[in-house]
Design a protein around this nucleic acid. Structure first.
Lengths: 247, 247
DNA sequence: CGAGCGATTGATCATAATCAAGCGATGTGG
DNA sequence: CCACATCGCTTGATTATGATCAATCGCTCG
């Protein structure tokens, strides 16, 4: 589990043995499991610990005063959410597990000391933040400019691509533990309309989606229809070229 | 001008004299002015320099293959856009000036060396990234869940608040150099509908907006209607409490 | 077996897009 | 200095996308 964390960071910057050790030590002994659909952190809270997501699906969301809810981001296996709560005092959104997840809890002080001591690790985590921000920008475009069909198609492409990177796809198939209601909350559409749009996609021979399994039958076509350009995922992490020698 | 940069960073973390000097040296002699409505960086480019926005308004945007355009973020005076292009190889969006702006150009190598040498500065910039990401999340909610009226009201509240922090408001008034078409691109609405919604706001005695001047007549009411909660702007930067002694 | 959840269907309604045209201010070239 | 072009704003009429309301169905689970 903890090894995921190192792998993730090394996608951005190669680490020295010392740095790697420090990271692993951080996580050891502090992992716990949380069942699905459980709110892990709530908007408005001021957590004293960081929760590093090590495995499983989760999502960020915000709720308006009148109850309307927007899902803002999905965390997939291999992502590590939420270093940011170290730096920002108060949560501006909630995080809820979608599947059962495993989480490492680390106190703010410990993290902060680590980051100032190992700037290279800080830079890698900053990078992670920037990639997530790029994804958030694309979601803004998705909600602002695309039609219902395009929005859903785009989200499916994104999730599939992100899962493929971490080896969680099987041919054209992948897990997709999201209800239609949740999908609607992510793309700003009503459940009913999500349902009809999915049927349209099935009828067009583009996808299969039942239970928790998604099959993308014609990915190129789906990408085309969604105007999906994976550049925003920044899969070419420049940091892979940086080694661990001191600056 | 360059002093804005130091002030911005010190909103997050107090700097030592040495750190402050290093920052100022960075910007000196590399400032240029750019006229309004000029594309400064284009999606797909791989810039070799960072452009630090020192003064003026600008915006991020993305264009879909069929020409639909979404404005993703506004940069206001006192913001400093776009350290991030240091870390990400390829621009996933474009940046265009809205007013005439002044910009400092700094090479990637210089910045990277500075950040590894002064982790405290890196942390402050990361912080900035996180606040921007929080704003981006709120925009996602805005486009996904709010009505036309609420979206525009929310954006006006946000801009007004952000300007007020940096001392750019005058009572209920502030500059607002955004056309109705651009406003529409920011909130995902047609120009026509923006126009009608603004009229509705004027008729309700909430705002005045002509030329480039915005007056918010009844801010509390506008916030209420927009369901605007400023928590996401993270105005209480915890970093103010950190001093510059070594970690 | 009943409860509850998620998916599905049908009918109606509403918000916002689109199309088309006109207005007023600003600026430019002859 | 006037004629004309352009840009941003405004208005009216029509259309369409997606929301809402209401009900049913199938499955799982206690």
């Amino acid at each position: 589990m903890a090894i995921h964390l190192v792998r993730k960071i090394e996608a951005y910057t190669r680490l020295s043995a010392e740095e790697r050790q420090a990271l692993l030590a951080l996580v050891a002994n502090n992992v716990r499991r949380i069942p699905s659909r459980q709110e892990m952190i709530r908007e408005g809270e001021r957590p004293t610990h960081v929760q590093l997501l090590l495995d499983g699906w989760a999502f960020r969301h915000k709720t308006l005063v009148d109850g309307r809810r927007q899902i803002i981001a999905f965390f997939l296996p291999g992502d590590m959410c939420d270093l940011n709560i170290t730096l920002l005092r108060e949560m501006d959104h909630s995080i809820t597990s979608l599947t059962s997840v495993s989480v490492a809890e680390i106190s703010h002080g410990v993290i902060d000391a680590l980051l100032l001591r190992y700037p290279r690790i800080m830079r890698a985590l900053w990078w992670e933040t920037l990639v997530n921000a790029a994804i958030q920008r694309e979601w803004t475009v998705n909600l602002g400019q695309r039609t219902a069909f395009e929005r859903i198609a785009h989200l499916l492409c994104e999730v599939f691509m992100r899962l493929r990177i971490v080896g969680r796809t099987n041919g054209q198939k992948c897990e997709f533990p999201v209800t239609q209601a949740e999908l609607g909350e992510a793309v700003g559409l009503s459940t009913v309309h999500v349902n009809r749009t999915l049927q349209e996609m099935r009828a067009a021979g583009l996808i299969t989606l039942n239970g928790k399994e998604l099959t993308i039958i014609d990915l190129p076509q789906l990408q085309e229809l969604a105007m999906f350009n994976p550049a925003y995922l920044h899969l070419d992490h420049e940091g892979r070229e940086f080694d661990a020698t001191p600056a």
